[in-house]
Write a protein that binds this DNA or RNA. Structure first.
Length: 343
DNA sequence: GGATCCTTCTTCTTCTTC
C-alpha cells in the first residue's frame, strides 16, 4: 500500500514536470522566431518551492520508501495467486502464428485442356444460362454455399451466434426473423435487377428496377461501366472431378480481365477484401468448378467481388488476381475435405 | 401440390461524447 501510494505520487510528479516542460516548449515555439533566446526562461525561471524544503530532513523518509520492500509480491507469488483465482494457464497449442491449413490433396485450379478466353470474341452471343436441374444428383452433389456453411470455423460460429443473440435482444425473435428475411429479399431483388441489366447493349433501355434496389444499382453504376463481354449469367457450374456444384452470378470482362463475378449487398462498408469473410473462397470454388465443367469451353483465373450499398454510395469492387484465386482455392480445398470427412 | 435445392445475408472492439 505504501509503495503504491508513493509510486502514484512519483508518477504525478513526473507527469507534472513533463507537462510543464512541454508547455514551456510550445510557448517558446509559438511566441518567438528565436527559440533559443526565449527559452532562456529555463535558466532564470522562478525558484522552485521545493528548494525551500528541508531535504535533509525528509531524505530518510524518501530513502525508506524507495528501498524498503513493503510488498512480498514476486512473480512467483503473483502467478500462484492468479492460478488460484483464474485457474492454471493453458498454453495455446499454436502459440505464435497459427499454421495455415493445407489440403491433403492438391487439385489443380486450372484446366490445361481449356484455353483462356480473354477477348470479347463472342460478341453478340447471348450469355450462357445453364439452369440448375433440381432433380439431378440430389443429395449426392453438395453445393458451394452448403459446404461453406457446414465448415465454418468455431471462431466464425461464435461471432455469428453472438451477433444473432444481440440482434434478437434488440429486435425480438419475430423482429429478427423479419430483418433477416428483408436482407435476403433485397439481395435477391438486387441480383435479379443486375441480371436484367447485364446482357443489354448500351443503346438498349434498362428495364424498371424496384424502388427497393435503386440505391444498390446506383452503387454499382461505376463498376458496370467497366464490364464487357458477358459470357454467363446465373449459370450452374459443376466440378466433374471433385463433385460439387454452384451457381455463378456472372462471368464477364472487368477492365479487360475475365472474371467470375459475385454481386453482394451489405449494410456495412466493406472496403477491404478481408471484410468479405468467405466470399473469396466461394468465388475460387466457382472458378475451379467452371474450369472443370464441360459446358464451358474456356477457363477463368480471376475473380471479382462487388459489394453494393443501399444508400447508393460507390460499391467496392475487389478484384482477385490469379495468385489470390489460387490461394483461396487451396483454402477452399481444405473446407471441401473437412466437409467430406464430416459426412 | 408439396418438398427440396441454390442462393440471398449475418462476424472481426465497443461505447461515450461533441
Amino acid at each position: 500500500m505504501h509503495l503504491g501510494l508513493s509510486r502514484c505520487a512519483l508518477l504525478v510528479g513526473e507527469r507534472a514536470s513533463f507537462n510543464g516542460a512541454s508547455a514551456l516548449f510550445s510557448y517558446c515555439n509559438r511566441t518567438s522566431t528565436n527559440t533559443f533566446s526565449t527559452c532562456n526562461a529555463f535558466s532564470n525561471r522562478k525558484k522552485s518551492p521545493y528548494s525551500s524544503v528541508d531535504s535533509e530532513r525528509y531524505s530518510k523518509l524518501v530513502k525508506s520508501v524507495m528501498t524498503h520492500r513493503v510488498s512480498a509480491q514476486t512473480p512467483e507469488s503473483l502467478e500462484e495467486q492468479d492460478t488460484h483465482i483464474y485457474g492454471p494457464v493453458i498454453k495455446s497449442s499454436t502459440p505464435n502464428q497459427p499454421l495455415p491449413k493445407v489440403p491433403k490433396t492438391r487439385h489443380p485450379l486450372l484446366n490445361h485442356e481449356k484455353a483462356f478466353a480473354i477477348s470479347e470474341t463472342e460478341h453478340g452471343a447471348a450469355p450462357a444460362r445453364i439452369i440448375l436441374q433440381r432433380g439431378q444428383d440430389r443429395g449426392s452433389v453438395p453445393s458451394v454455399t452448403r459446404i461453406l456453411q457446414q465448415t465454418l470455423s468455431p471462431e466464425q460460429q461464435f461471432f455469428l451466434e453472438r451477433w444473432r443473440k444481440r440482434m434478437i435482444a434488440q429486435l425480438g425473435e419475430e423482429g429478427f426473423k423479419e430483418y433477416s428475411q428483408n436482407l435476403f429479399r433485397q439481395g435477391k431483388l438486387f441480383h435479379i435487377a443486375v441480371e436484367n441489366v447485364l446482357p443489354l447493349k448500351t443503346e438498349e433501355k434498362a428495364p424498371e428496377v424496384p424502388a427497393e434496389v435503386e440505391g444498390y444499382m446506383e452503387s454499382i453504376r461505376h463498376v458496370m461501366d467497366d464490364i464487357r463481354g458477358v459470357r454467363a449469367i446465373e449459370s450452374r457450374v459443376l466440378h466433374n472431378k471433385l463433385g460439387y456444384l454452384g451457381i455463378v452470378d456472372c462471368v464477364a470482362l472487368y477492365r479487360g480481365v475475365l472474371c467470375v463475378i459475385d454481386w453482394k449487398t451489405s449494410e456495412r462498408s466493406k472496403p477491404f477484401l478481408d471484410n468479405t469473410y468467405d466470399n473469396p473462397l466461394q468465388v475460387a470454388a466457382y472458378v475451379g468448378a467452371l474450369n472443370n465443367d464441360v459446358n464451358y469451353n474456356y477457363q477463368v483465373e480471376n475473380g471479382l467481388i462487388v459489394v453494393a450499398y443501399k444508400d447508393g454510395s460507390p460499391a467496392h469492387p475487389h478484384l482477385l488476381s490469379s495468385d489470390q484465386v489460387l490461394q483461396y482455392w487451396e483454402r477452399w480445398l481444405v473446407r471441401l475435405e473437412e466437409y467430406s470427412e464430416k459426412s
